[in-house]
Amino acid sequence: MSTHESADTVISNKKAALAGLYDDIHTSNMFPFWATSEGVDHDEIKQLMATSKAVPFVWKYGEIEPLLQRAAQLITMDDSERRSLILINPGLAPKRASVSTMYTAYRLNDPDEIMPPHKHSPSAIRFGLTGTGNFTGVEGEDVVFGPGDMVLTPNDAWHNHGTVGGEQAVNLSVLDLPLVETLNAIHFDHNYTEMEDGKEVEKKVQSARYPSDYSQSIYGEGGLRPRFVDHKRGGGLSSPMWVYRWEKMEAALDAHKDWDGDPHEGIVIDYVDPTTGGPVFRTISFYAQMLRPGEKTLPQRETASLLLAPFRGKGHSIIDGERFDWGQFDTLAVPGGSWVEHVNDSPNEPVIFFGATDAPTQKALYLYKRWGRNQAGDLLRLA
């Protein structure tokens, strides 16, 4: 055997041995993390990075609303106590996630449907789209809400949903369920009880314990905090202000419409916990973002994932070089790490996004970063 043949044999034997090693490792439910100079079929670094990832995507309300109507005809409250459409990111399917840490769901309730109470460890909000009779009862505060109003249903707070007033209503939900699921901390409870005459009695409707305007009367004026109430409602796990009314947010946006704003975001106003000034939940938070007529934001990139629902107006976004057109009540997924810029296509009307972000989780773990580019294209570190 020649020296050349001997070397080829050694290489061939090594390749065969490596292939056998990899097969045995994978069969044993393990993963090899090393790099070799051999041209084997296994690229360990690439495989390690090749986990399922969310992709930029737009769900169209024009496609969602007819499906909601069909579901309302076919699925009654006798069939199920829940009737929502969850938005599944194509890059994460079949996982119930619109981005890696959050999902959005749309819910249509027929006139005067009230679902029984439940609670769960994921934190959630409801944001009104159509109808003035959306209903959510949260820990004894009965909230009726309309377009643009945001209602919290916090971690471990009893709540129920429905409509009042004799008309259909549509709202969208945002939950941190994919994050909580990843942390193996999911729990649901549907056994709602109240004490009556010293006995625990199952109930299908929560009894009101607060006035229906409690959130606004106690927390509705910024900078003012009453001292005579308990601010730890629902266990103190979130903002104690259950409902944020649209007229307050709209007035704040209108008051700042002529400000310069942020060239990478336009005018952004956060929903906050009035007792701390921090995010409404520890895991995710929410904001309204306004683009003035014809406004185009400069490119930015952040580690946080975003879900954006255009509440007013229409336009398009460029995400990692690809154009995504959107209109009223659509939902746009912007995965963390994506370069994004938004464009208001109208020369006369503003765009207003309702936005959700997992930035609070990343900031708590010291993982959050944000970059942008200026007009010249230079890279900037923004956060």
Rank of each mutant, 00 (worst) to 15 (best):
V99H: 02
P122L: 02
T104D: 09
T51C: 07
K204T: 14
S215A: 02
H316F: 12
I125R: 12
T331S: 15
W34M: 02
V280I: 14
P226R: 15
E247C: 13
D330P: 03
S12T: 13
A252E: 09
D78I: 06
R381C: 13
D156I: 06
Y219T: 13
H342W: 07
I218Q: 07
Q206D: 04
S207A: 13
R82H: 11
D189V: 02
F188C: 10
F145E: 05
D43K: 00
V144R: 10
A356E: 06
G313A: 03
T283P: 01
L152Q: 08
N348D: 08
M30C: 08
M1S: 14
I11A: 05
G148K: 10
L332G: 07
S215R: 00
G377Y: 00
N344E: 04
E349Q: 06
E341P: 01
A19R: 00
A35G: 07
S285D: 13
L379G: 01
A17K: 01
Q328K: 15
E265D: 13
L68F: 09
T76E: 06
R245E: 05
T130F: 09
A304F: 00
G133D: 03
G198T: 10
L367C: 01
D8K: 13
L367W: 04
S2Q: 09
D230R: 15
L67N: 14
T9W: 13
R370C: 08
Y287H: 14
L306C: 05
A7P: 04
